[in-house]
Design a binder for these strands. Structure first.
Lengths: 277, 277
DNA sequence: GTGCGATTAGAATATTCATTCCATTTGTTA
DNA sequence: TAACAAATGGAATGAATATTCTAATCGCAC
């Protein structure tokens, strides 16, 4: 009623409700309690649904929103929805918005600010990684690698660093590795010896490197067990893969730090080594 | 259309979309890509909003839902909403606790536990990075690169992924880059043309790759301005460098994720590009 | 018990929204 | 090139929804 609630976080709203609870009328108190106990219902439901579940008429819900300073139910609902999106993607939108604004400010142009931006970007990509990769996939991947005679690595363009890193670690651990880098001629020749006894790890992000998209199906067709690391289930290296690791929210090519895939391949390699004992 | 999609989990829906993607028409493929990339928008938005953000007419969105076997957009949206509620249910605390317990349990050898170990290790290495790198060094480094005609990159062995990544980004930004990788003969020949007009970025960690230790002094002696990224001030690529980035606490070669140096070179490259305007 | 202000419920309304339909375009086969 | 089928975009439609309005009710002081 009195306070102008422009943009409000969910936690702030909780505090505000708790504070005013005593001052509210009977019905409104009842709604306050329901709303604090069932934030998800408020976020996703309609006025009628919330009204029914909390046992009050729809108009009371709207009055409640008004009493809190919102223009209406819809406005209040936005705050509850923000809590949901925060739960799945740690401040994805906020991050983007912050980057956009910083980019244009004078501060954002200083190298030090650029570094801290990439650091925080990398941090959140690591959080996402550990959330989105499931144990089952990792187990399956290491099982494939454990049985392989030779391990073929396919990662070109922007993904090449990931492939070289995996190659390095696997070789350190005594595995036989063929890095498909296309030096000294066609990449087809390098992969010509691959069979079902071997294994392939393919890495590719948007925009998918043409050679990768071309070679991958050939190897799959030849029966080579395949592990794919990519950023979308629609990428050209998904179909036919035994295991797919999807790493979401990859920024545009020039801005990606490759932190998440680097960590992932590292864990695959070391996990393989530990499981072998 | 054909499949009766009663109750469906979000992951199942993702799989279904990926599977049918090829069989869909152009517009519908475009929508498929958008919804996989922006599940939150679909969960919370209206048909009109989703349509606008994905750049298609609203009717196409409905047709997409139909093509997937749903009765309409609203029905499909329920699946996307289920993902949001699932995301908040096991709260941060629970998830964090689970990670902690896994880490210490006997299951430490399982790949999933290995991954979470590398992730947390990478997290702390990023924190260290942003603390130990100072603005002055970054400014000096970008200044050197800005004046360079060609940028030579020297990073062999375990550091090679970092060098290739830097090469990729710098080239994307239109810089002339020479990656010293030793293919097709001696690495000396590749670097033969470097002069004081150019610049060198050298990356090396223990155990320092012999070729790096050999080539580095030569280039310095020839007057090439140099930026070094290494793990100790006693490393062979420190003496003579204009700027030295010391990244501490690098684990042994097979265990390092290269997360910190990857971030650093990324920031250097982008910082250079932004400063150039 | 009476009168008054605050509160409430439910119907009425206006808006937003998903869906459908059809004319037009696009792509394909003959 | 012509004819056909599939796909597309945009307007029309009807349902669902939030909000407002008003009459009725409640609580309370006197």
């Amino acid at each position: 009623m009195n306070k102008a609630q422009g943009a409000m976080s969910y936690d702030e709203l909780r505090g505000a409700i708790a504070q005013r609870h005593r001052a509210l009328s009977g019905r409104l108190q009842q709604i306050a309690e329901f709303v604090l106990d069932h934030p998800t219902d408020v976020a996703l439901g309609t006025v009628a649904e919330v009204a029914q579940r909390s046992g009050v008429p729809p108009s009371a819900i709207v009055r409640f929103a008004h009493a809190l300073g919102f223009g209406g139910f819809t406005e209040m609902q936005q705050v509850f929805r923000s809590r949901l999106v925060a739960g799945v993607a740690p401040s994805y939108k906020a991050r983007l918005a912050r980057m956009k604004s910083e980019e244009k400010s004078v501060l954002g142009r200083q190298p030090a600010a650029v570094l801290s931006r990439f650091v925080s970007e990398a941090q959140s990509s690591l959080v996402t990684l550990s959330q989105s990769v499931h144990a089952r996939e990792l187990d399956a991947a290491t099982a494939i690698l454990a049985k392989a005679r030779d391990i073929y690595l396919l990662g070109l363009g922007g993904s090449f660093p990931v492939a070289t890193h995996l190659a390095y670690v696997l070789r350190k651990l005594g595995r036989r590795v063929v890095l498909l880098d296309g030096t000294g001629g066609s990449i087809h020749e390098q992969s010509h010896a691959a069979t079902g006894e071997d294994a392939l790890v393919a890495i590719s992000f948007r925009n998918y490197y043409p050679d990768t998209a071309r070679l991958f199906p050939e190897l799959v067709a030849r029966g080579v067990p395949t592990i794919s690391i990519t950023d979308s289930l629609l990428s050209p290296i998904v179909e036919g893969a035994r295991v797919v690791f999807e790493i979401q929210d990859m920024p545009e090519p020039a801005l990606r730090t490759l932190v998440a895939p680097m960590c992932l391949v590292q864990a695959m390699a070391i996990g393989l080594d530990l499981a072998a004992d």
